[in-house]
Design a protein around this nucleic acid. Structure first.
Lengths: 201, 201
DNA sequence: TGCTACCAAGCAAGCGCTTGCTTGACAAGC
DNA sequence: GCTTGTCAAGCAAGCGCTTGCTTGGTAGCA
């Protein structure tokens, strides 16, 4: 989905994907505006004009990075949401999936760029992202509704969802891969903070 | 504290404060890197070279904005923290103070710039901010400890604090002043999401 | 007379992006 | 087997413009 038409085969050296990865990392580290085409080109050993063979503008590179971020996190959490376990176990699996994409080395840069640099997209691309995000948040809303149905939480209002999304997305600001807490541990602790354990066995 | 030596008197037309305000608003809206000196100068009806009479660099303007943000939010929450009410009431007052600074028209731009643009500060200025932030978060840690002592929450670990700070700070992304929820309402609902009401009367 | 606060002009560097051209791989024609 | 044509992928150079910041000068007030 990130590439609109080309196959996402990873066999051959795919320079376009290299550029997206490098752009993602740099956008994450320095921000979109502070990242130059020369930075990106240098990171993949190209001359500064060459990326424009693959993308028609810097803005288009940001769009590719952000859509890649939406796609991977959406896929990961959707899989966790349909794993068919109990509401509580499903919820924790979703937390772990979200945090894995946000903090793990695989998609970290894409997800972080999605969260912090989307405002630099033009109106059209932003509408694209918002549409995907609405679907994503609906998934979380459903999970909260299920938890309430099961009597595990007291509040499943939209504000509760935003409260949760904030806590999750803010981990980008403080999580360190070499720190003492694993992603799975954080996911479990977050679940406990929301779910009223006194109502369980 | 925002201005290192000059008095913070607001009586006379203080052009330096005007610049800080305009810079804060623009940094918040467009980001630090995407904001130009000409943007800032234009916003206060100056020529593009004139702000440099008051600041020695663009970086210094960012530093002033960020320190102003830290100072105002720190002051507001510290006052709420020492109001001498019950742990529960004190906590909710702190939530409201934090959200007021973050979402209210008074200090919104300073606080948001603090949260999102601090990474563009040099190492020295960042250390300055981190030191202030550590003190600020210690205040919240104390509040959580008090709540636990009173039997109102089950977890007062640092992760719980980070969880809370994330939920709070993320409100910047979704709160709209013309929306249906007031800041006070959000503060109360956030308090209820954390505090186990089943243990109260 | 001296100082504060600013303007008008502009500099050097860097920006996103375009252009004309080269290179290596592969296939068709003879 | 050798030439010829085509194409993807990128290089080298640089264009027009913007950037943060500097400089010399000056109006207005004390």
């Amino acid at each position: 989905m990130a590439a609109s038409r080309s196959k996402a085969s990873a066999e051959e050296p795919n320079r376009r994907a290299d550029i997206v990865r490098a752009a993602g990392r740099l956008f994450h580290e320095k921000g979109y505006s502070a990242t130059t085409i020369r930075d990106i080109a240098g990171a993949v050993d190209m001359q500064s004009g060459s990326p424009f063979y693959h993308f028609k503008s810097k803005h288009d590179m940001l769009r590719a990075v952000v859509l890649e971020g939406m796609d991977t996190i959406n896929t990961a959490v959707a899989r966790a949401a349909t794993s068919g376990k109990s509401p509580r176990a499903t919820f924790e699996a979703m937390l772990r999936a979200h945090l894995d994409q946000l903090l793990g080395s695989a998609g970290r840069d894409f997800a972080a760029t999605l969260l912090h640099e989307s405002r630099h997209l033009d109106r059209e691309a932003q509408a694209e992202v918002v549409a995907l995000k609405d679907g994503y948040e609906a998934m979380w809303q459903q999970a909260l509704n299920d938890l309430k149905q099961a009597g595990l939480i007291a509040d499943d209002s939209p504000v509760a969802r935003l409260f949760l999304m904030g806590a999750l997305n803010w981990t980008v600001q403080w999580y360190r891969p070499d720190g003492s807490r694993s992603v799975a541990q954080i996911a479990r602790q977050f679940a406990r903070l929301l779910i009223d354990d006194t109502h369980r066995g």
